[in-house]
Each structure stands twice: as C-alpha cells, then as structure tokens.
Amino acid sequence: MSELKDRVKAAAGGDEQPQQPPVTDLAVGDSVRQWLQRRETFFIEALPKGVDPVHFMSVAHALMPKLKDCTPASIHHALLACARFGLEPDGRQAAIIPYKEVATFQPMYEGYIELMYRHPRVDSVHFGWIREKDQWDYEPTAPSPRDFFHKPRVDLTEDERGRVVLAYAFAWIDGRRSQVIILNRQQAEAIRDKYSKAYRNAERKGLKDSTWHTDFDAMWAKSAVLRLRKVVPTSIDLADLLQADDDIDDTSSAPPVIRGTVIARDDQDGEQPPAGTWPETAQPGSRAHETDAEGGEQA
C-alpha cells in the first residue's frame, strides 16, 4: 500500500499540487456572461434588419473580458449604440474603448462605409492606402474614372512597399464613380488638431490616450471616409452616427446619448454595484444574487 502511495505521489510531482486557476477570476467571468445574456433581448431588438443577431452577440461576448473594469451602465450604453447602428464591436466597424471605468462607443471607418452601403443608390464604397512604391496617379481635371489610378505592388510585401503616404476613398453611385477623396498624413494631422477635442484634452493632460494617439492610422482612414460622406447620399442613420461621433469627441467623462437607443431598467432590487464591479458570484456556477447598474441617460 505504501508503495502505491509513493507512485501516486511521484506522478503528482511530489508534495506539489497542480496549480488551479483562481476561483474569483472564473466567478467574475461567469457574472459578466450572465449579465450580458440577461440583456441580449435589448440588443437584438435594437439591431436593424439584415444584421445577424447571433454573430453580433458572439462578438459582444468575446469583447467582454476587455471591459471587465468598466461600469455595467456604460457597457450597456456602448453595446446598445453598436446595435442601434447595426455595427459589430469588432474594432473594424466599431470599437468599445475603456476610458478608465467608462466603456465608450467609437465608430470606425468600416462602420461608416457599412452605413453608406445601406443607401439604395450606393453601389459600392472603396477605401485604400497608397504606399511609397505603389503605382498611382491622380488628375482631378480628367473625366471620371480616368482621373485616378492606383496599382499596389503585389510583388512586394507591405513593408517593402514603403510607408503609407496617402489614404483615399470613393463610391459608385447609380453606376457612376464619385469624386475621389485623397488625404495625406499632414492633412490628417491638421484635421486632428483642428477638430478633435478628445485629442487636445489628452495632450493637455499628458495622457495621450485618445484614439488619435493610440491608433492614428484608423483615425486617418476615418477622416478620409468622413470626407467622402459629402459626396454620397446621406441616410438618417449616417447623419445620426456622425452626430454621435461628434458627441463622443466632445466628452471624456460620460457616454453621450445616442438617438434611437433605450437604456433598460430591469434591476429588480433597485441596487447598483460600485463602479467597475460586477454582480457578486460566490463560486463558479453559483446562483448568487446579481444587481445591475443601468443608470444611463435615456434618449
């Protein structure tokens, strides 16, 4: 018998016990998932027709660990804004960015392109980067579509093609190509310096945490696509997204109100957890009491 115990002990690595994952981390993960599952109906009902609700919620679930320190109310508001416009929070169509304890909805350039596509007169929307060694030409006075030409160097890697020198965007509308919007880095920086309050506030505070700081190329691309909106048919949704984007840039303390969204108030006990915390779960899989923080503004 003692020999058997010795073999079991040796197989287990002597006196050392296998490391177990922290129970509290799993409990918090369970609470986050439960919190989101209880609100799926609100987000799904806000989605426009044609947007796959299963895929949208799958993307939302994958995002939640990055937002674990944000207030539930701000996460609810940000996800509801994504759903309202039918944009996935995947970092391409839209992003949900944690600013300290506030989860903030941030539309990206692919989100604007998606909304432009939804207009019945818009056939297609194109965005691209021109690099130093690419072949390209732009002659504004030439008739469309001979005024613009871009041929990437497919025989070279992205790094070998050189640094990005221009962003461009255009659309095909009713079978005709729109004006080509071209934006160089200096123009993007001028737009940032003139129009972005979030950038200026971050610079003044020495934080450098605005999207212009953390993902300049994404904001450069969005600036080019935003200029394209002036030459494409504008829908109500696109106008609302532009207004929401402006409101987001104007504030750094609380998420703005997005027209057309409704903040749910389904907490049964009227309690709200402290900022940055989730409903307490004593053990993984337990049914400990949960509370909500849905104290956002209503549109």
Rank of each mutant, 00 (worst) to 15 (best):
F105M: 03
D30W: 01
G50C: 04
S74L: 02
V28F: 03
K9M: 09
A12V: 08
H76Y: 13
Y99A: 11
S58N: 12
S31L: 00
A73I: 05
G50M: 05
D52S: 10
M57Y: 10
T41V: 12
A10F: 02
Q34N: 08
P89M: 04
A62D: 08
M64S: 06
Q93Y: 12
R84C: 06
A81S: 13
A83Q: 07
V23S: 10
D90R: 07
L87S: 03
A62M: 09
A83R: 11
E45P: 02
L80I: 13
P107F: 11
P22V: 04
P65W: 00
G91S: 12
H55M: 13
R33G: 01
G14R: 03
F105W: 06
C70P: 13
I97F: 11
I44N: 08
P18R: 00
P65Y: 05
D15T: 10
I96H: 09
A12W: 07
R39L: 10
L47V: 08
A73F: 05
Q20R: 12
L67M: 09
R33E: 08
S58Y: 07
R92H: 12
H77L: 11
R84L: 01
D30M: 00
F42S: 12
Y109M: 14
D69M: 15
Q37M: 04
I97M: 14
R84Y: 02
G13T: 00
A46D: 04
A60R: 04
F43A: 13
Q37W: 04
D15Y: 07
A83C: 07
E16T: 15
R39E: 00
E40C: 12
A94N: 03
F56K: 01
A78G: 00
D52K: 08
G50Q: 04
R84N: 10
F43Y: 15
G91V: 10
P89R: 02
V23A: 07
A27D: 05
P65V: 10
Q106G: 09
L79K: 03
E16P: 02
H76D: 12
V23G: 04
